[in-house]
Design a protein around this nucleic acid. Structure first.
Lengths: 203, 203, 203, 203
DNA sequence: AATGAATGAGAATTCATTCAT
DNA sequence: AATGAATGAATTCTCATTCAT
């Protein structure tokens, strides 16, 4: 039943998905949906919670614990892109729908996102320690960097899922996507920690 | 009239925004809206086209032509973040609404996005040439990198707009945000071009 | 089970009371309610019949048989007001709900009411005989008088039950209410029987 | 449109009347009903207010001002019974539906009823003065008497309307009904004022 | 003797859209 | 050039009622 809701919300969007359609996709009657999940709002919340938990669990399970920061990030990203590739509807609901449907929902998905961002923030800090970073990175800057990285990941996930456009080319694998992002981000972060930063001139 | 539509779509979302409210915000009668823009769908399309064009124009105007690749990217990013900060409704419609409302609209916004991504792709290629890059970067990889950069930018733009949560801290300025992203991305890209890439082991 | 129905119908009204709530108040499952009382309609009918019978029985038990007509009316009224005060839900169902829910039910409660009205009619006739009434009262007029008396009683019963508004004043006792009505009605009826009637002029 | 609502509410009751049916009876579409009267609740309130006002206006117009108390009561009652006979639906909504549908509505109709009861209370007091009443009637008792009278009137009104059962006999005219009530009540009230009251023995 | 699980039918309410003017 | 008035078609949600066990 939740599966049907995920599929329908992903395909139509929260507002456009009707309880009628969800019930039909689930192969049950509408009142049954209301019996278990009391309203459209609660149903959507339940969906968000379940899919958030599944995504976080997938990432957590993928991370190789105890390794170097870059290995951890790498394995986490692979887990992330694997999950988003294998559960595109789940990802579409979390990334596209939940974030755009106002208050009860944004908060729920923001909490999950904060968990991931914190994880990345921790990794960046750990990497800084590992590198014996001399320049103390401002907390806000680290948050910004973590945000940029998570945002880039989210964006790549969506891109990988949406890039069904070119029918000839297969969508990039999770491994490829993760490698692209590591290359994009990690070397730069490494240089940053040793003080090699890009600076504009006066404007 | 389009302004009213932008404001309303941003505040309510495409489905939840009613033509009644749009007409009221615009200070005209509903039939007038239908006279000029024949349906809700066309109205939304018109909004997307106008806001897309405005965003692209803002970025284009900001870019310093003929300079080095990094200067061009830097100035473009400043233009981008300036626009999104000054026109949050416009950005919300493009980034949050248009992308999540299914077919007629995703295509329109995807076209605009492709324009920006192509611009970035060109810059990365130019940078590669400037660096006398020996390793030929695969076209697909460049596309992936450009996508990651654009995605990170979008994500940061949304973050900067949404981070009104902490009432103490002012939202980061467009300049700050652009600098964060340059630091995050550009050094890494530079290293990448001289062959200094991050590679996983065997998994 | 019927008790639960009485309480629920009184509180919510016939239409607003749900079988779910009735079953819950009764502490049984809904199918059990359907097993014993086959539908909401039959359930309500059964309730009306039981409460009607109880009210009539209470009045009948209260009447002192064989006494003078006024004593009989007095004792009957006391019984009536005592019952309505002690069983407000029962009275609410009979007076407010059953009478307003259309055909199957109005008939049932009308039958009970007819019983009471007939009783009063008989008393008025008896009083007329006792008074050696010379003027023959038209049957229809007697019926009208009986109806007025019963209506006044009903109205006072509701008033006594509803007058919880003034928190300082206790609701009038059954005895008080009955006395008010006797004073209101009986002396007038007595005069009427000896021909002392109120007559309008020509209009 | 309000007429259609009155008819439908009277026939079906508040809950059982559907907005669909009301719209159909009114010969308009359902959204139009919602355009003018925003919800079922507001529609019912509007109906109650309009019908209350009409009833009060009818009674007020009927009362011969400046006459003796009994003439005033007589003329008022005639007006009342004339109205209820000529507008049975209006009376049914006020008397049967509004009073039994819980809070927003009972208050509205109670206000109207209080107006009528006050009028009658005033008349009884005036009659007492006219009669040079020696025994001071307790205020509460007068209220009770007024309540009994109004209740009797309401009851008779309903009876007169419902007595369509006997197809042979025509329903009593407003004049007849008013006369019955005057005979029932006024002589008794008169005696009461000169101290001729009915008293029970010791129980 | 009793119920957990399920549904068909219908209720209030909203909205994109269109005429007649 | 502009609108007041009106509606067909959904949408969310509820409820009396029934099986299979």
């Amino acid at each position: 039943m939740l599966d049907a809701a995920v599929a329908t919300f992903a395909r139509r969007g929260y507002r456009a998905a009707s309880m009628d359609e969800i019930a039909e996709v689930a192969g049950v009657s509408k009142p049954l949906v209301y019996l278990y999940l009391n309203s459209k709002e609660e149903l959507f919340s339940a969906v968000i919670r379940r899919e958030s938990a599944a995504l976080v669990a997938a990432v957590r399970a993928a991370v190789e614990p105890g390794g170097a920061a870059d290995r951890q990030l790498w394995s986490g990203l692979k887990g992330f892109f694997t999950y988003t590739a294998e559960h595109p509807d789940s990802w579409a609901v979390l990334h596209q729908q939940a974030r755009t449907q106002g208050e009860p929902f944004v908060r729920e998905v923001a909490a999950m996102r904060a968990g991931l961002t914190d994880f990345v923030t921790g990794l960046i800090a750990a990497a800084a320690r590992e590198a014996g970073c001399d320049t103390e990175l401002a907390e806000r800057e680290v948050a910004g960097l973590a945000h940029a990285l998570v945002g880039a990941a989210e964006s790549l996930a969506e891109w990988a899922n949406t890039a069904t456009a070119g029918p000839a080319t297969a969508p990039p694998s999770a491994r490829e996507t993760a490698a692209t992002l590591m290359n994009f981000a990690w070397t730069g972060l490494g240089r940053l920690m040793v003080g090699d930063r890009w600076t504009p001139g006066e404007n």
